[in-house]
Computed example of a mutant assay.
Amino acid sequence: MTDSVPVLTIDGPSGSGKGTISRIVAGRLGWLYLDSGALYRAVGVAAGWADLDLDDAGALVRCTFDTDIGFRETEAGDLRVLVNGHDATDELRTETAGAAASAIAAIPEVRAALKDRQRAFRRAPGLVADGRDMGTVIFPDATFKVFLTASAEERAERRYKQLKDKGVSVTIDGLLREILARDARDASRAVAPLRPAPDAVHIDTTGLPIEDVVVRVLDIVTHPAG
């Protein structure tokens, strides 16, 4: 029974550190890892390849069902995402893919189509799932739930450093506007809006080193309250 497999959900807005923290925590625990955002970004990339209109909900739903999404871990431990057989990992991390994912995630039929794919990641010995509705919709019965936050300014700064390291020309002001716009879209969408689960532990990562956050999250799993 997969329902007996422990799940740690880590939700939060873009740039809160949930992806980095989730990967590290999963590695330390020896659990599987689900990057739910990669699924939406993969559909967004596939839609872009097909030159689909992001306002055409019907076409996007069909694209969701038709898109083959796979994950492959390299010898170095990096997670690569395959979209219809092509390595699209780098393209998935662009701002364009992120914006497409946010738009696609607002379509109820798309979310429903991806729900079973996400739940299928729940396998022994355990799962760390990061996203925006992991603890509220996908795994509401999760054993452990965390909601990460950080100031919009710090999240923009983090994203700026990531993109500059990759040679991408961006501005902090532009990234801040995009982050605020995405926060508004994610929080106001009718289906599965971004919000913490009532039983989630809140951690504000503003100004905190990554290792400090990792230790706090691991403590939640290894020393559960009550």
Rank of each mutant, 00 (worst) to 15 (best):
Leu163Asn: 02
Pro196Asn: 06
Phe147Arg: 11
Arg41Thr: 00
Ser36Pro: 00
Lys145Ile: 14
Leu148Gly: 05
Leu92Ile: 02
Pro209Val: 04
Thr67Tyr: 00
Val214Leu: 05
Val83Glu: 05
Ile179Asn: 11
Gly48Arg: 09
Thr96Ile: 14
Gln118Val: 14
Phe147Thr: 08
Gly19Pro: 05
Asp130Phe: 03
Asp55Glu: 15
Ala88Asn: 07
Val128Ala: 01
Ser151Trp: 03
Asp35Ser: 06
Gly37Cys: 02
Asp35Gly: 08
Asp56Gln: 01
Asp56Val: 00
Ala88Leu: 07
Asp199Trp: 13
Ala192Asp: 09
Glu109Gly: 03
Val61Phe: 00
Ser188Leu: 11
Ala42Met: 12
Ala184Glu: 15
Ile179Val: 15
Leu218Ala: 05
Asp66Arg: 13
Pro108Phe: 03
Ala156Asn: 07
Pro6Arg: 01
Gly48His: 06
Ser151Leu: 08
Ala100His: 14
Lys166Tyr: 02
Leu32Gly: 12
Phe65Asp: 11
Asp204Glu: 10
Ala42Phe: 10
Ser36Lys: 03
Arg132Leu: 01
Gly12Asn: 12
Arg132Phe: 12
Arg216Asp: 04
Ala152His: 03
Lys115Ile: 06
Ile24Cys: 05
Phe147Gly: 04
Gly135Cys: 10
Lys145Cys: 09
Lys161Ala: 15
Leu92Lys: 03
Gly167Leu: 12
Gly17Tyr: 04
Phe71Pro: 11
Leu54Thr: 13
